[in-house]
Design a protein around this nucleic acid. Structure first.
Lengths: 337, 337
DNA sequence: CTGTTAGCGCCTTCAA
DNA sequence: TTGAAGGCGCTAACAG
């Protein structure tokens, strides 16, 4: 592959001059600039960023690690991050951890070896690699956690206002006449899930309703497993709940499948609402009441935090940004008659 | 950040020795290996791949460019490619072109500058940058096109058997008693779309049905625009078609929305089937008959082609792999009574 | 303005 | 088995 040296030779100038026309740094006279441009085109020359990065000690690259890009939420986060990064002249590389702790460690290490300047991280559902993260920050690699915020770890984060948003949704259900409301959750070990459960309890409390532990259905993030779990619960439950709220998208799919198999009509027989959007939910019959997470914003705000750290090199204490979610009211939670 | 030199100093050995223990190349005696390992840990040393890549002239990295990761099809393609790349010791970086020709050029250039060894490319819906691609191949960067295969461009490709799969779906509709079948397509300038249209014509022909140009509804890939288009067509159409086949996912969403707004019940009033899966289609009422593309396989086979090129450095003529799609029969195409 | 040159951090001969 | 040294391609001083 052509090098800057070859270009210089062909153009009859020094490598310094070629470098100058490429980077647009120092001034180059018009005639030389033209000759260089011609040589570049003729040789089909493309600057070698590997060499440039080594020399400048900068890569202008940031990485983002997500558990699984095939979950619709994450590509939106990535898109948000990408748009901010790009405007700032940064390149964003996205990778999947497969929600696997070991792979996540590996990827962090790999990105660090690649000398990305910062990393946006949506933690896998495993013990967070706190030591690794702290040492990266120490070494000057900025890290911002998105969506899933680790406890006791001084790192910038962006998440949604879980409790507030859930409270809003549950209050909506209560306001529409539902009383016995079950909540189907993912693993409560995840902070997001437990915070949403907290919002649920707060809403019940505020409305003077009693919290029934038997209405907390803890599941996981695989729709089919959740479906089984719900069917099991519905069987055991003395009298179905009047409504179900699910705390995330995959869980919602499982719940809806279970209701369908159980021939429970929404909202005729049972009310329903969920955290997370369901992509094509405007096609679902009936339309679903949803707490819409601002996925794009989570990505973009995260990238902003990250770039700020990069620029200012400040050691300000870690910030956690909690963005608002919106309640989109559909037919699935229609007033109980 | 710690360098190999610092590690060598701390361990009291030469850089060469440190390098040897890291890469596992030459033999290193146990005592030295231990000392080096200790130094590495103490300094929190991470090898600098930028420098390594410059030296070795290899990056063990491949890129994949997709139009839009928020379309569910593409993350699956990426996942397929990633699994193959990873097994071969390659790192995959995924980026979005936003289906924009200029951005696509930019990204190709960027990836090349980063010295990726190969690129998996799902072309944007624009004039393919043939010159750029050919020059990259010439320069030794392998390129494999996925899903969208450019005409007249000698480049390895993986796509689905568009015509055959569509024929299968249309034959299924015909077999279930539908006669006047409309086809809603994306831009027919896209080869995938036109090939699917070809399959449609073939199926009609084989069944002895006449092809009616007025039943070809060409749209684009934005559901809302497609929805408008369909409503317009339904209004003008003398007598609704008995069924609609849509040639891709986004278009399908548009069609379904239009039918819903038009209060046409599927399959009671009109039959429906589509190319592409609709993520949550098992929740749709009724379930949708679908031509399922093997997205993961497209990615993995593409990566295999790419890695083969990298390994063998062969100049074999370009191969195009056409993978099979599967018809998943749902209620939306139920036998016409 | 333009040319020259010293490394960036690492791997890889080549000697010892 | 270990150490020393050259150079990958490029940028950024600095000297002319």
């Amino acid at each position: 592959m052509a090098t800057i040296k070859k270009v210089a030779e062909l153009a009859g100038v020094s490598v310094g001059t070629v470098s100058n026309v490429i980077t647009g740094g120092a001034m180059v006279s018009e005639p030389l600039r033209v000759k260089v441009a011609a040589a570049i085109r003729e040789l089909n020359y493309h600057p070698n960023f590997v060499a440039r990065n080594l020399k400048t000690q900068r890569t202008r690259t940031v990485g983002i690690i997500v558990p699984d890009m095939t979950i619709p939420f994450f590509p939106q986060v990535i898109a948000g991050a990408e748009s901010v990064a790009r405007k700032a002249g940064y390149f964003l590389m996205a990778v999947n951890s497969g929600d696997d702790g070991a792979r996540q460690r590996e990827l962090l290490s790999l990105l660090r070896a690649q000398r990305v300047e910062g990393i946006l991280l949506v933690l896998a559902a495993a013990e967070p690699p706190s030591d690794q993260i702290l040492r990266m920050i120490e070494a000057g690699v900025a890290v911002v956690c998105l969506d899933r915020v680790p406890d006791y770890l001084g790192v910038d984060s962006v998440c949604v206002q879980n409790a507030a948003a859930t409270r809003m949704a549950i209050e909506h259900l209560i306001g529409n006449g539902y009383r016995r409301i079950a909540i189907a959750t993912g693993p409560l070990a995840l902070r997001n899930e437990s915070e949403r459960l907290t919002g649920y309890r707060e809403a019940l409390h505020n409305a003077g309703l009693t919290f029934e532990p038997s209405l907390v259905w803890e599941g996981n993030l695989r729709p089919d497993a959740v479906c089984e779990m719900c069917i099991c619960r519905l069987t055991r439950c003395l009298g179905s709940p009047e409504a179900i709220f699910s705390t995330n998208g995959p869980t919602a799919l499982g719940v809806l499948r279970a209701l369908r198999r159980w021939s429970l009509r929404v909202p005729l027989d049972i009310g329903f609402a969920t955290f997370d959007e369901l992509t094509v939910d405007d096609l679902l019959e009936p339309s679903i009441t949803t707490v819409a997470q601002p996925a794009f914003e989570i990505g973009s705000r995260g990238a902003e935090l990250l770039l700020n750290r990069l620029r200012s090199k400040d050691d300000a204490p870690a910030r956690t940004l909690a963005v608002e979610a919106n309640l989109r009211i559909g037919e699935s939670s229609r007033r109980r008659t």
